[in-house]
Amino acid sequence: MITLVKQETFKLLHKKSTYAVSATLLIIMTVFGVLTRNYPKYWGDPKGLFVTMFTGINWIVLFMIAACSSIIAMEFQYGTIKELLYRKYYRGQILVSKWITMLLYSIYFYVLAFVWSMLLKVVLFNNKFQLSDTYQPGHSVINSMWLGIVGSFLTVWLVLSLVLLLANIFKSTAAAISIGIIGYFALSIISNIMFVLMQKWDWLKWNPLNMMNLPSQLVSSSFHKMTLLSTPEMVVGSLVYTAIFMAISYVIFKRRSV
């Protein structure tokens, strides 16, 4: 299994896009940092920006959606799936090695964005706010950031498990990427309707889109009045949905003819 993860990492590290994406993330974060520092009137509160890792937290979702769909779909696209599968390893191992690689990649992104956020904070906003300042009632800036990262990590993986599944079904990056992105960002558009419907049909609160509200709920304690779920319920819900999508992927991948 370690060999397989190494092989997946080898491929990832030899793609130019891997480096381009990391560089892009850092540049975008820096641009948002600089703009907020120089034009605070238009760009708002630097604390809020810092808590979202200078918007990095959203870009990571995009980049991970692309990476996850590509790590599965590229094997079908390049015809390399046969080479992967006929070896002494089992299909399940091949798929799991890809998941592990993506898990490591997502952790890498969060660490990178976090470290860069700290740097930007020191360089651009050293005197503007302290990490211990209050951000939300009961939560300091750094605390809010941590909760945001943890919540985002769980919900991102809920989306990614769906993306991995779709890439597996459609064998194409395009379909998986579009649905993944729409799924993630659809929330802000339809959440109001969803909350209304949930008041009417209580069981709707268990739908996967509602789980995506976890990051907001972690920071703002009153949010559970909208989601109708307690925070532990949401954490478990996210994990269960992720597990379900992964399990379906696993079964499909094992049965697929190549």
Binding site: Y78, G79, T80, I81, K82, E83, Y86
Partner: peptide, 10 residues
């Protein structure tokens, strides 16, 4: 088998 599977970036 059939045609070789090749990663263009390697």
């Amino acid at each position: 088998i059939e045609y070789p599977g090749i990663y263009p970036f390697l």
